[in-house]
Computed example of a mutant assay.
Amino acid sequence: MKLLPLAALSTAAALLAGCATAPPAGPRIDTTLSARSQSDRIKYIIIHYTVSDLPRSIKILTQQEVSAHYLLTDTEQPFFYTLVDESRQANHAGLSSWKIYNQLNSASIGIEIVNPGFVETPQGRVYAPFPPAQIDQLILLLKQIVARHDIKPENILGHNDIAPQRKQDPGPMFPWKRLADAGLVAWPEASRVAARLPLFQQQLPDVAWFQRKLAQHGYAVPQTGELDQATRNVMVVFQSKYRQSLYDGVPDAESAAILDVLTSPVPVMAIPPTVMPQPQPAPGTLPTE
């Protein structure tokens, strides 16, 4: 028998050992560290209506290019369909912007509500209301999403807020005030609006003022100083959210007061220092210096 050299035996043993050990399934990753500078990808919640009945809404949102994370039914006892996981992007916002963000699909959760939208009548456009039971369910879901992603109240928006030139949803019948009462969205304090109203009734700001304030609030609005159609469209969206009794797109004193309150920080009252009582001298003695 011919014996193999020691080096050959070592090489053979190494090869056999390699065959017995499976190759690594992926890169070696250490997860013990975490960067301080990071934030949740989700920063916005966008609310829509479907302008369709439930069966057609399901078909559109599951089989076509548009999608949403949640679909709220209009059944007697409304409930949600989960259509896209919150960790993934849904295609619901389209061409959109709010403050410094554009293309909000990548930074938002979309919620579609089954609602017929509006019909055109000889008296004008008539919007459909939202049943209270739907809004009850919506508020419950919004509170959960806000808790998961730390969404700021000013970042719960309508589709028309982020695309005022082409979208109307969720429309002037959507009860934003109910969301405000639930602590979910920012809302102008009525007493502050009333205090500012006489000032704007005496002298209405020019269009440039409205354009600057609307942009400060978050809207994409032209800064032309002219009441062009694009500016009127933004005014309609703003009024249909915060003053649903009249949303004609005309800058007026009440709209100015509401807008001024929304874009002005609440003044912080200075707390006067506590004055400690001075000790009084005993009867018959002189006060010391």
Rank of each mutant, 00 (worst) to 15 (best):
A8C: 00
N91M: 03
S106V: 13
P277K: 05
A215L: 00
Q38T: 12
E289C: 01
S87Q: 14
T75M: 09
P122N: 05
L83Q: 05
I100T: 07
F80E: 02
P55V: 07
I42C: 07
T82D: 04
L6E: 13
V146E: 02
A68D: 04
Y49D: 14
P24G: 06
T263A: 09
Q211T: 08
K143Q: 15
L72S: 03
Q144F: 00
R125P: 00
Q103N: 15
A68T: 13
V193N: 13
I42Q: 05
A12C: 02
S57D: 06
L197H: 08
I135N: 11
T62P: 12
P175I: 08
E189N: 09
P153D: 04
I162P: 02
V66F: 08
A14M: 05
A22R: 05
L16V: 13
D161E: 14
L33T: 12
P23F: 12
R192A: 15
T263I: 04
N91R: 11
A194C: 03
P5H: 08
R56L: 13
V193H: 12
V221S: 05
A20Q: 08
D150S: 14
Q77H: 10
L141E: 02
Y242F: 15
V119W: 02
Q137V: 10
S245K: 09
L214R: 06
H92N: 08
Q89R: 12
I162S: 04
Q64A: 11
E76F: 07
D85L: 13
A90D: 03
L3R: 15
G94A: 03
L4A: 09
P23Y: 10
P116L: 03
D30Q: 05
T274M: 08
A20L: 12
N233K: 11
A230N: 14
P55R: 04
T31F: 15
G117E: 02
G284L: 03
V275W: 01
P153M: 07
T224I: 06
D169T: 09
Q63N: 11
P273S: 14
L6Y: 06
P24T: 11
L15P: 00
D228F: 01
D136V: 10
P122W: 11
T11H: 04
S245N: 08
Q165S: 09
S67I: 05
A68R: 12
Y81D: 00
Q134D: 07
Q137S: 09
S240R: 15
S10C: 09
Y49L: 01
P287T: 01
T121I: 01
V185S: 01
M1L: 11
V250G: 02
Q63K: 13
D161V: 01
I135D: 11
S57L: 06
F174K: 00
L138W: 02
T121L: 05
A13K: 11
Y81S: 00
V146N: 02
N233I: 01
S96T: 09
S34T: 13
S37K: 13
D228R: 13
N233D: 14
V185T: 14
T21M: 10
A68Y: 08
L104H: 07
R243E: 05
H217G: 00
I45S: 00
Q203N: 14
P164L: 07
N105T: 04
I162A: 06
K177N: 09
T274L: 14
V268P: 01
E76D: 15
S52Q: 11
F210C: 09
F130G: 02
I111F: 00
